[in-house]
Amino acid sequence: MSKENFLEVRGLKKYFDAGRPALFSRESRFVHAVDDVSFNLRRSEVIALVGESGCGKSTLSLLLMGLEEPTEGTISFEGRDITHLNDKERKGLRRKIQMIFQDPYESLNPTQTIEEIINEPLLVHGIAPDKSERDERVKKAMEDAGLKPAEVYLYRFPHELSGGQRQRVVIAAALVLEPEILLADEPVSMLDVSIRAEIINLLAELRITRQIAVIFITHDLGSVGFFADRVAVMYLGRIVEIGTMLEVLEKPQHPYTKALLSVIPVPNPRLRRERIILQGETPNPIDVPSGCRFHPRCPVAISTCKHSDPPSITLSKTHQASCLLLVK
């Protein structure tokens, strides 16, 4: 099996039915949450998926997890098509692909103890039927996730933990299944800045010790810059630029990427720079603009941008961006 087709996403689309615009209109409208996304993830690679709120990042992660059915497109894992699976096949796959959710305050059941939470995946999958073996695995996952010593936390309830600790519990519950891919949906955006670094360092470490591939979703490129191998920038349901971390950070080509990079806060007033602040917010994904979807907010748009949808332009072997200005 080649390294390339570990996780492969081709032309993935997810349209949500948004109902009819008016009571008597015929056609119902769709939210183009994810609109033709393709990329591949290599073994133990970290991809940062960046974009504004509402651009479809969470939807994409739910599609990859099989928690939403794609409208179109294919997802394949280790060469096998996993786009549509029955419950049993899906369950088997869950051991390989796990997810960390955005909000550590909401993603733990308040009535379960930490031990029950981390044990749950093992129970559900019937892994390690022997109690002592299970305890062993639970402890190992907890310590790997930085909850040391595990005994202190085992019988606590989520509300007795801080935000950072809760996020570690969520990570431990994902690790206990020993997945090969970890989808992290904004794992730190709800946390205090002083503990964000802990969680990011933890993920960076896991990727080395456990060879886990990570898709790190965030709206703040600054928070992942240092450990991602590649960066994919998403705008209105589509990836508009993808490249290695250095390519994207140092030579961003898409005007949207440039804007995103320019607004990352820099903790040094001497380095204040001209920020490219896009006005307005991500447009409504129900009425995707014609032509290039970014043109209404693009500071450098030209007239052709209104009509033609830019193709993905290859800038180097690893770097692609979709912008008409790049067409030579």
């Binding site: 800045v193 990011i200 600054g222 820099v266 903790p267 380095l271």
Partner: peptide, 8 residues
């Protein structure tokens, strides 16, 4: 603790 893009 602050990620600094000038020193990736």
């Amino acid at each position: 603790a602050f990620p600094d893009l000038t020193k990736p």
